[in-house]
Structures are given as C-alpha cells and as structure tokens.
Amino acid sequence: MNPYSLLAFLQVQASNLPERKIANMFRPLASPGESEKQVALLTFAITGAIFVVVGGLIVYTIARFRSRPGDDLRQEPPQVYGSNQIEVAWTIIPILIVFVLIGVTARVVAGVQNASPPKTTTHVTVIGHQWWWEVQYPDYGITTANEVHIPFSLDGAQATYFMLQSMDVAHSFWVPQLSGKTDVIPNRDNYLWMNPKAAGYYYGNCAEYCGTQHANMQIRLVAEPPEDFKKWTLNQQTKANEASEAAQDKAVFLSLSCVNCHMVQGTTAIGKFGPDLTHLMSRREIGGGVIENNRKNLRAWVNDPQGIKPGCLMPSLKLTDRELDQVVAYLETLK
C-alpha cells in the first residue's frame, strides 16, 4: 500500500467519528461532565435570580434617587442610619442559599471523586511532558502519544480510569465535553475517570501553564465503539512495519540522532524522551496538535520543528534533502 492511499484510508476511517471541535462544557457527553453541568445550571438559576433582584434594586435606586437639574441641593434627605431587622434579613437569607449550594456541592463532589469503577474498565496512564502527552495502556502494553483512544458505550457503562503523572512540570488534563480538569503534577499520582456516551474525536487542552508551548499541548481523545477500540489496540500492539522496500530509509533513520529521543518498537530506536513513533501514522496530528499529520507537514516538521513550534524540545537537525526524504519515507511506513 503506498503512503497516499494509506493516508486516504485513515482519513476515511477517522471521518466516521464525529468531530467535537467546539469543546462546549454545556454539551457534556459523559457522566462527570453531566453532573458538573447539573451543578452549573443550578448555580446559574440561583445566581441569576440574585443578579436580577440585586442588580434591579441597584439600577432602580440610581434611577429613582438621582438628583435632577433644578433640585434644591441644600435640602438634605432624611438621615437614616440603618435598620437591624433589614440587616438580619439580608444576612439570614443568603446563609440559607449558601446551605443549599454547599449541600449540592458536597453531594456531587463525593459522587464524582468517590465513584467506584464499573466492571468494564479501561486503565490508561497519561504522562505530561513539556509539551506533549505520553499515553500508556498498562493492560495492553501499548505506549502512544497525544491521541488517547478509549471505548464508549451509549449507556455509559464503559468507563476509563486515568492515572495522571508528569515527567517535568505541572500540567492539567482537560477534555471539557467529558469531564472537568484534573492537574497532572510531578511526583504525585492523580486520578480521573470518564465514561463517554457518544463516539467522537474530542478536543481538549493542557489547562495548567507549563512553559513556552503551553498553547500547543493539545489533547485529542478518540472515543470509539469497543470493537474499534479492540482493533486499535491490536494494531498498536504490533511491532513496527518491517517492509523490505523501506529497509534503506529505515537504516538512514536509525543512523540519525532521532533514536536518542524516539522509540520505534522492534528496532534499535529506544529513546524515551520524545513521543513513541511506532505507529506514528495512526495519529492525525503531530507536535501536540500544532499541525495535521500529512506528508508535507511531516517533512516540514522534521526539517524545522522550531519554526513550527518555537521553543519545543525537538531540535532542528539540519538534515540534507535526501536524508529528509528518506526519514519521512520511513516514518510514513509506521502505520
């Protein structure tokens, strides 16, 4: 299969999943997101009512008691010093509202944080790096990057538990349509779960400032039917493509310093500092979501990552055109 038809095939496959580019937190498609939305709506109702009443009173007071041209300014209004009954009233009523709000918060916090895992659970370890995500599946022995695949089911019975770790500084894992964010903190294990109820290619972001390229530390979360997820894991578990026609390109790749940072399973490239490239072409974007993954972009990226994502930790290697062609040709075999 030549690289172009491969890309076309991948794009067709990907387009089966609805794009969820507008990460609207009020269109949640998983349990934690839904209960957070319930809290939000209740808070909107209460604060909205307060806004109308208090804001209305302020505006009314300004409009009603504004002095107008022609008023006798020497005439002072009645001097009122206060009223204990009124003070008590507008202390007690807010306290009652506060109790309602606290009760709701306590219930939802406990419900989300102390939920016990359902029977069918996928475990994923997400590790934040400056400025990309390492994604491991301990049960399947898979390591990938930036694109998190998890199964979904319409009834929400497929839950995924994330263990969140960081290799360097603090990050935060946030896919608004599925769940609120949980920080990814070095030297600490944090947990997050979600059970998507709709398939989709979800967009998210790192939400804790983590240095130069915080903006391009994006998350792509693919929620797919369990059978597709299964297929995906099987593909990810295979070693790198060893087609003989790529042997020469592969040799060039392995002779360059790419291998110090990148891993390609089944070869001598065992670097762990950068993203695992074993199935690079199965991912739709490169550079933590900064550009789409196609031949042209891939070539531009390998040629000069600093031009595309200034400050990122991948150096520009100053490859010759020929080396560049060969490296890109090899990378394109890593489906």
Partner: peptide, 19 residues
Amino acid sequence: GLTGIMLGMAPFDWQLTDS
C-alpha cells in the same frame, strides 16, 4: 461576586478553573 460563587462550586470549578 456571582461568577465567584460559580467558581466556588467545586464541581463547576473543575470545568472553569484555568479557563
């Protein structure tokens, strides 16, 4: 003050914080 209450509701804050 009212958006502050929204942020004080911890579950809503999981969505809102750092946005």
